[in-house]
């Protein structure tokens, strides 16, 4: 691994100043589960690595505030997967966090890191899209918030600007129950990078939100507000046609060695059908519990 200088700012302001000063020469270190691999393979060679884990304002944690669940950017997957509120209200996100790598990886990998890497295969991205997450950003000109739908640009690129960093991810607490599920395709049952990820959420009003990843440069969100997709009594042709339109943005790369485009597209459809069924059933179960 190339030598670099290591910075461990104690305050958010200092971190922002460092990132602004060094620009692309600096890389942020949160969990390190992607960064250190890339430092070793030489695909990244920053002069400065800025470790966020000793910043008081960035303590990991999950709290409720003003009708939102606020997940600190440095919160690790293990804690997200185990959090009772997330498991109850945002089940797909808990499921997604639970399949990021092994126990060892989930103990380090952070939610902020997962979205900042902006891998098309990022497991948490579809769930965050379905649950309407908002990314909270600190930067030289203060703090800003953007919906997750406007966050991902393409593989490895987000709308984060120079000197900016993610401080939290917020999830609006749904007023009514929602059934949600995270599904993925991998090459083996043991931990693996996904060749298709999909999250489906169905709420009590019949709105279905489908998000999918690893089938294009960035994860995609598609919403059915007509209620047809979640309606088991709707005409099968209508549901199939709707699903096709919702999955139309999938454009898998032929260059990947993990799966071919036609297999990815076929599996996307399988996962979408299964996802709608599972999410609908979960919604029914949740409503039954009320």
């Amino acid at each position: 691994m190339h030598a670099f200088s290591y910075e461990r700012p104690a305050t958010l302001a200092r971190a922002v100043a460092l990132l602004e000063a060094h620009g692309p020469e600096a890389r942020v270190l949160a969990g390190g589960t992607d960064l250190i691999i890339r430092l070793r393979d030489g695909s990244l060679a920053p002069t400065v690595v800025v470790d966020l884990k000793r910043i008081a304002e960035l303590e990991p944690g999950i709290r409720e505030a003003d009708g939102r669940l606020v997940i600190g950017a440095t919160t690790v997957m293990t804690d997200i997967a185990a959090d009772a509120r997330i498991r109850r209200r945002f089940e797909a996100l808990a499921e997604a966090a639970a399949v990021v790598g092994s126990v060892q990886i989930r103990n380090r990998a952070t939610l902020g890191g997962n979205i900042c890497n902006a891998s098309p295969a990022a497991d948490t991205a579809p769930a965050l899209l379905v649950h309407g997450a908002v990314v909270v950003i600190a930067g030289p000109s203060g703090s800003r918030r953007i919906p997750i739908d406007g966050w991902f640009v393409r593989s490895g690129v987000t709308t984060l600007g120079r000197g900016e960093l993610v401080t939290a991810i917020e999830l609006p607490l749904p007023a009514a129950p929602m059934g949600s599920v995270h599904l993925r395709r991998t090459r083996r049952r043991g931990h693996d990078l996904a060749s298709v990820t999909l999250c489906c959420g169905v709420d009590a009003s019949g709105v279905t939100r489908l998000a999918y990843g690893s089938v294009g440069p960035r994860p995609v969100l598609a919403v059915d507000a007509t209620g047809v997709l979640a309606d088991r009594d709707a005409a099968p042709d209508a549901r199939t046609g709707l699903l096709e339109r919702m999955l139309a943005e999938a454009t898998p790369s032929a260059r990947s060695m993990r799966a071919s485009p036609d297999y990815r597209l076929a599996m996307l459809r399988v996962l979408a059908r299964r996802g709608v069924d599972i999410a609908t059933a979960r919604l029914a179960a949740a409503e039954g519990r009320r």
Binding site: R187, R188, R189, G190, D192, M257
Partner: peptide
């Protein structure tokens, strides 16, 4: 070799 290394050369784990 495109899948050079443990990330893309998969061997059985305890779940396989």
């Amino acid at each position: 070799i495109r899948n050079l290394g443990a990330i893309d050369y998969r061997i059985p784990t305890s779940l396989d």
